[in-house]
């Protein structure tokens, strides 16, 4: 041991080391990137992984661009009316209702469009091709774009089945939904009076969803397993909060060869 090494502090007690180690937690980033939850090259932008694949804007433009509470309520009510079963539950028929502008056309949409399974591969491709430039046009669900001819329209018609869900103090409409496994649905949800949750208890864990009053939230979901799932409110909304619940009953369905969006999820 030389004299110098006795005077020189060990590297663990140097300022530079301490300052650098202070940033240690930032290393978690690499795990995120490993799960595809963060871009590895931040300067390259977030690229296609962020491209919305359907209803991509999730009410992203807030209440201003979306339907009003009243418009939404009447669309949801006609959805319930035309899909209601005798026991009060709602089972949407499986056809395309993804027309961009036509909340009112819903009644008509119930007839006349082919089943979604007809053009699965094309729809998938269309979704991919279209996603990067989709900025609130047809898919956002609240643009004013008229239905166009061609591939885009074909996609729109073969898109996921629309589900309407209203949340309010203290309940949901429809309160019981009957859906099918492995079929893509586009949930169109709105809290009518104040902030609520519309979360789904899915066995091991949940999918938490927050709804702000008057803001349309759209999310496309495909249930991959049959089961009865609890729908519950996860934002405190007053004294009836605890009883704010619904049910989604998912029944088996013959798998459609790679038709649903999950195929492209990863």
């Amino acid at each position: 041991m030389t004299n110098e090494s006795q005077v020189k502090p060990h590297f663990t007690t140097r300022r530079g080391f301490i300052a650098a180690a202070g940033f240690g937690v930032v290393g978690l980033y690499f795990l995120w990137a490993g799960y595809g939850a963060a871009p590895l090259n931040i300067f390259a932008g977030s690229g296609e992984s962020q491209a919305p694949a359907g209803g991509g804007h999730g009410g992203g433009h807030g209440a201003a661009a979306g339907p009003s509470v009243e418009e939404f309520r009447s669309a949801a009510e006609s959805f319930i009316e035309s899909n209601k079963l005798p026991d009060g539950s709602v089972m949407p028929r499986r056809q395309a209702m993804a027309e961009a502008t036509s909340m009112e056309q819903m009644d008509h949409a119930a007839m006349g469009h082919g089943p979604q399974a007809e053009a699965p591969a094309a729809a998938d491709k269309a979704a991919k091709a279209q996603a990067p430039m989709d900025h609130g046009g047809t898919q956002g669900g609240h643009g004013e774009t008229p239905p166009a001819a061609g591939a885009t329209e074909a996609h729109a018609e073969a898109g996921p089945t629309d589900i309407y869900l209203m949340a309010y103090q203290w309940g949901y409409q429809p309160a019981v939904l009957r859906l099918q496994a492995n079929v893509p649905y586009r949930f169109r949800m709105m809290a009518l009076d104040m902030t609520h949750g519309a979360s789904l208890q899915l066995g091991a864990g949940s999918r938490i969803i927050r709804l702000r009053p008057g803001a349309l939230v759209e999310q496309s979901f495909t249930f991959t397993r049959p089961g009865e799932y609890l729908l519950y409110c996860t934002v405190y909304c007053g004294m009836g909060h605890d009883r704010m619940q619904g049910k989604i009953i998912v029944t088996a369905n013959q798998p459609q060869e790679s038709s649903h969006e999950s195929a492209s999820a990863h």
Binding site: P52, A53, G54, G55, G56, H57, G58, G60, P184, L200, L202, G203, A204, G205, R207, I209, E218, Q219, S220, F221, T222, F223, T224, R225, G227, H260, E261, S262, A265
Partner: peptide, 10 residues
Amino acid sequence: ALPLQAAGAM
């Protein structure tokens, strides 16, 4: 592992 595939903004 959830029995739900989600597409969309969230």
